[in-house]
């Protein structure tokens, strides 16, 4: 079998997920030997034409040009894997989906008519068929490696879909939520990060996005019972995965509250 080609693509994003690939330091040379890196402009300007065996796509679709480009990439890719919160859920820029981006454009730009952007920020899966999504802001280097290694071996990748809580329990981190130490989104957030934040005494802030069945309503009730205001609870969800199904409801509540507050200020 010939060496498979790998392409890495960027849409609206911060490049952090692409850096996570470059962060596979110990494995990077083996990886470069196992696949032919045909398109990865974060790493090299040498670009080969498609088609590609594996495409990793970072970033969200925010412009009509993006929407067109992702279609072309899909057409050239045998497997298309989206990486990171932007590509899987619209990213932090999906906050604009709840805010009315058109209004803001007029406040920021002298000639908003020059802009050509969509009303929102959308996941890649809203436009093309995606074979696998890796959540996280940024993605875990080891999960990226696991996917590529699995593809090379023709097996199913081992990517957990369960909560961060199980990672905490496996590594012996005492539950911050139950100890009343910190609000934590671990019970509704997908594992994969290695429960980094709770391990250093900081509640999970949900950068890996929702589990397969997040009961956000029940967790929010618990957080309010701990004394957090409903707005503070909603804001916890208004970050990198604000547009992810499961988190979007609370995030929209926070956005609505912010709009109401602004309207109040402007009215007075």
């Amino acid at each position: 079998m010939s060496v498979p080609t790998l392409a890495v693509w960027k849409f609206a994003s911060c490049d952090g997920c692409q850096l996570s690939i470059l962060d596979c330091e110990d494995e990077l040379l083996s990886l470069a030997g196992a696949v032919r890196i045909a398109h990865f402009t974060e790493m090299t300007r040498a670009v080969e034409p498609g088609p590609y065996d594996i495409s990793l796509v970072e970033g969200s679709v925010t412009t009509p040009a993006d929407a067109e480009r992702i279609g072309q990439i899909r057409a050239q890719s045998r497997l298309l894997v989206t990486i990171g919160a932007c590509a899987t859920a619209g990213g932090v820029q999906a906050l604009r989906n709840m805010a009315g981006a058109g209004e803001y454009a007029g406040l920021v730009y002298a000639h908003p008519e020059y802009l050509s952007s969509l009303e929102g920020s959308f996941p890649i899966s809203a436009y093309v068929q995606v074979d696998l999504e890796l959540q996280g802001c940024p993605v875990s280097s080891s999960q990226v490696l696991e996917v590529l290694t699995a593809v090379l071996a023709g097996r199913r990748p081992v990517i957990p879909l369960h909560s961060v809580c199980q990672e905490c329990k496996r590594q012996g981190t005492t539950c911050l939520l139950v100890r009343g130490a910190n609000p934590c989104l671990g019970p509704v957030t997908r594992a994969g990060c290695g429960a980094l934040c709770p391990a250093v005494g900081r509640g999970c802030y949900g950068c890996f996005g929702p589990t397969e069945s997040p009961n956000v309503v029940s967790l929010a009730r618990r957080l309010r019972a701990d004394g957090m205001s409903p707005l503070a609870v909603s804001r916890l969800f208004q970050t990198f995965n604000a547009g992810a199904p499961g988190f979007d409801g609370e995030a929209a509540e926070a956005a609505a509250a912010a709009r109401a507050a602004r309207a109040g200020r402007e009215g007075s």
Binding site: H162, S163, C165, Q166, K169, R170, C175, G186, P187, V188, T211, S213, N215, V217, S218, L219
Partner: peptide, 13 residues
């Protein structure tokens, strides 16, 4: 089930 987070804390503990 309306309360349960299906997080797996119980089975881990």
């Amino acid at each position: 089930a309306r309360r349960c987070l299906a997080c797996g804390n119980c089975t881990s503990a």
